[in-house]
Computed example of a mutant assay.
Amino acid sequence: MPFYNQEEIEKAREVDLFTYLQACEPQELVHVSGNVYCTREHDSLRISNGKWCWFSRGIGGYSALDYLIKVKGCSFMEAMEAVAGRAAAPPPSFTSVPREEKPKHLLLPPPAPNNQAMLDYLKGRGISMEVLDFCVQTGRIYESRNKGHGNVVFVGFDKTGKARFGCLRGISEGRFHGDLSGSDKHYSFALPACGKNPAVHLCECAIDVMSYASLCRLDGIDWKQHNLLSLAGVYQPKKKIAESKLPVALTRFLEDYPHVKTVYLHLDNDGPGRMAAEAIQTVISKEYEVKNCPPPRGKDVNDYLCRRLGIPIRGAKGKEQER
């Protein structure tokens, strides 16, 4: 078995997944849109800007080593053997990406004839009917259908009211989620910013934002007086936490609403969620106060809401599926 010194290991860690697949398994790369790719084996594993995230499993990383170990099940030494021959290759050239930074054209799917299945699904997740009514009336959610599959479409808007972000979540037993073509995570799903409130409450996903609003309503708090923002999925800090950047959705929000000076973190009670909270607390500007407030019980805000309401927690037994 070969021996790898620390320098060789560090070089191997610099080889990202796109470069590795392009060189070693080009048949696995499938172009999705812009600079976004998936793999032929896993169409919910998205590769973009030197990072990858397997959305249906909630895991991600930067390097080909991470992918081989976490997705393919290789041992560290097996992964090193696969990558070492390419470790001297330069990191992927994503310099072409900025040239494509034109305004993104968001492709929203057509709505279903009605929203009934979506409303039943979200009510089953404990979301308040008041919150649902608001989101439907303002175009933040609607139901769509694709090849017989029902989905919730979550929409995010910029300050002018233009739709800039969209993602899907399946509403059947075999669940699915993913971003729409042209979606811009700078403008992720949010509930209305209140001009007078100097704080923002940050959750991982749209359902958690709606769950937090529903929890406020349970406690007699006017959720419409709060700024509620989602990260639009898993935020992956760098290995060295201090070198991480703030999530783009939070960065954009703080730029758009400079009166906001306090950030409440309601991220998941799991490894990625705790790491994301630590990274945000570490790298955010000193002009902001950060309060780490994970859900008191359960994996995420929606789990906690369901526990409060005494209803079953969806997805506790099954896995996210791909399609």
Rank of each mutant, 00 (worst) to 15 (best):
D222R: 12
L218M: 13
L305R: 08
A12W: 02
K245I: 10
G124Y: 08
A112L: 05
P98K: 10
A88L: 13
K102R: 14
K291F: 11
D184R: 06
D219Y: 12
K238R: 12
L132C: 02
N114W: 07
V283Q: 03
V136I: 15
Y304E: 06
R307A: 08
L21D: 03
G61M: 07
N269Q: 06
K261S: 13
L215W: 09
C293I: 15
P258V: 09
Y304S: 08
G170A: 09
G148E: 06
E255H: 10
F176E: 10
R140G: 05
D222M: 09
F134M: 13
D300F: 11
N49S: 13
G139E: 06
R57L: 11
Y20N: 01
L218P: 02
L250C: 04
L17D: 01
I47T: 02
P247H: 06
R99D: 09
L305P: 05
A206W: 02
S172L: 12
I47W: 03
R169E: 07
L265W: 00
K239V: 14
S188M: 00
K51D: 04
L202E: 00
R175W: 04
S214E: 01
A84L: 10
C203P: 04
R145K: 11
V71N: 00
E25Y: 07
K51F: 07
A199Y: 04
L231M: 12
S230C: 04
G174V: 14
S188Q: 03
I207P: 01
L265D: 00
L21T: 07
G34K: 08
P91V: 15
E78Y: 02
K104R: 15
S96N: 12
F189S: 00
V36E: 00
L108F: 02
L305F: 08
Y62D: 09
D184T: 09
H105I: 15
